[in-house]
Nucleic acid binder design. Structure first.
Length: 284
DNA sequence: ACGTAGACTTGAATCT
DNA sequence: ATTCTTCAAGTCTACG
C-alpha cells in the first residue's frame, strides 16, 4: 500500500477537493470494503453528510464530517481514494462510490480488497471504531530522533527493518521507505534493532525524515496501483536508492544490490554500504 | 512477551 | 498461447 508519503499526498488532495461538499448517495459494490458499521447502515448513515476536513494518522485517512461524524479509510496494498469530476466508466475495481451533491464522485477502488472504509457515527471517535488507530506509534514527521528510536528499539532482538515496519512503534513507514531509510543511514536491515548504536540511530532518525519528506515532495511512489486523489502517479520510485533495484549497481559504490526476505518482506540493501557488522573506526 | 509464518485477495510478470 | 509459480505499497491472527 501506499505508505505515509502516498497517504499524505492523497490527504492533501482530498483536503483541497472535499470540504464543503455533501454526500448525496452511497453505493457499495463490494461488502468486504466496509469495516464499520454494517453495509446497510454505512450507506444510510453516510448519505447527507458534509465533508469538513481531511487529516492523516499513520497510513489512515481521517475525514471529519459535519455533526461530529467521520469517515476513515485505509488503502492497504492497492486502494485508491479519488474525486472524479468527469464520470467516465469506473474501473472494474470500484468498490464504493459516493456521489456528491455537486455532481462529482468520491470513488474507492481497490483491486485486492484489503482496504477498508469506516463510518464513524456522531458520538463515537475514530479510535472507538478502529481500535488499532489508538495503538499507533509516533508520527515520524513530528516526533523523530535518535533518542526516540533508542527507547523504541531498546532490548529488541528483531531485525531493525522489522522494527521500522511495526506500526505500534512508528506510524506510517512501510516496506519501501524502511529500506530507503536504512540504506541512506548505512545500516544493515538484519541488525537486531537493540544493537544499533546511538550514533547510527541519530543518523537513521534524520534519514527517515529526509526520505519521507522527499517522497512527499515527489507525490509518493507509484509501483503499480497507487494514484493520488486526482488519479495521478507519484514519481519517487525513480529516486529510490535500493527499493526494486535488486541486482543493479549501488548508486554509491556500484556493488550489486541484494534482496532478502526479512519477516516475510522483500528487503533491499547494499552489502558494502550497509555492512552486517557496524563499521567501526580502525583501532590502532 | 516476543518474533515469525500464514491468511486475506487479485492480478502481473517470469519461466517452461 | 497457456499454465504455473512467485511476488506485491499492509495488517491481523495463530502458533512456537
Amino acid at each position: 500500500m501506499p505508505e505515509l508519503p502516498e497517504v499524505e499526498t492523497v490527504c492533501r488532495g482530498l483536503q483541497l477537493q472535499l470540504p464543503g461538499s455533501f454526500v448525496s448517495e452511497v453505493d457499495v459494490l463490494r461488502d468486504d470494503s466496509i469495516g464499520y458499521p454494517e453495509v446497510e447502515e454505512f450507506i444510510d448513515q453516510l448519505a447527507g453528510h458534509r465533508f469538513e476536513s481531511v487529516t492523516r494518522r499513520g497510513k489512515y485517512i481521517l475525514i471529519n464530517l459535519d455533526r461530529g461524524a467521520g469517515l476513515a479509510c485505509h488503502l492497504r496494498m492497492s486502494g485508491r481514494l479519488m474525486v472524479v469530476k468527469d464520470l467516465q466508466q469506473p474501473s472494474r475495481f470500484l468498490r464504493v462510490r459516493m456521489g456528491l451533491k455537486d455532481g462529482r464522485e468520491l470513488r474507492f477502488e481497490d483491486m485486492r480488497v484489503f482496504g477498508r472504509l469506516w463510518y464513524v457515527p456522531p458520538g463515537k471517535t475514530f479510535v472507538d471504531v478502529i481500535p488499532t488507530l489508538g495503538e499507533l506509534g509516533v508520527e515520524p514527521l513530528d516526533q523523530m530522533s535518535g533518542e526516540i528510536l533508542a527507547s523504541l528499539f531498546d532490548g529488541k532482538k528483531q531485525p531493525v527493518k522489522t522494527a521500522l515496519l511495526d506500526q505500534r512503534l512508528i506510524a506510517g513507514i512501510g516496506n519501501i521507505y524502511a529500506d530507503e531509510s536504512l540504506y541512506q543511514a548505512g545500516i544493515n536491515p538484519l541488525r537486531p534493532a537493540g544493537t544499533v548504536k546511538r550514533a547510527e540511530l541519530d543518523k537513521l532518525a534524520n534519514e527517515i525524515q529526509k526520505v519521507l519528506k522527499r517522497a512527499i515532495k515527489h507525490r509518493g511512489s507509484t509501483l503499480s496501483d497507487y494514484r493520488d486523489s486526482e488519479g495521478v502517479n507519484g514519481n519517487y520510485q525513480n529516486k529510490a536508492g535500493v527499493y526494486g533495484r535488486e541486482g543493479l549497481p549501488c548508486r554509491v559504490c556500484k556493488s550489486e544490490i541484494e534482496r532478502v526476505k526479512i519477516a516475510g518482506r522483500s528487503s533491499h540493501f547494499c552489502l558494502v554500504c550497509q555492512p552486517i557488522k557496524a563499521v567501526r573506526k580502525s583501532r590502532k
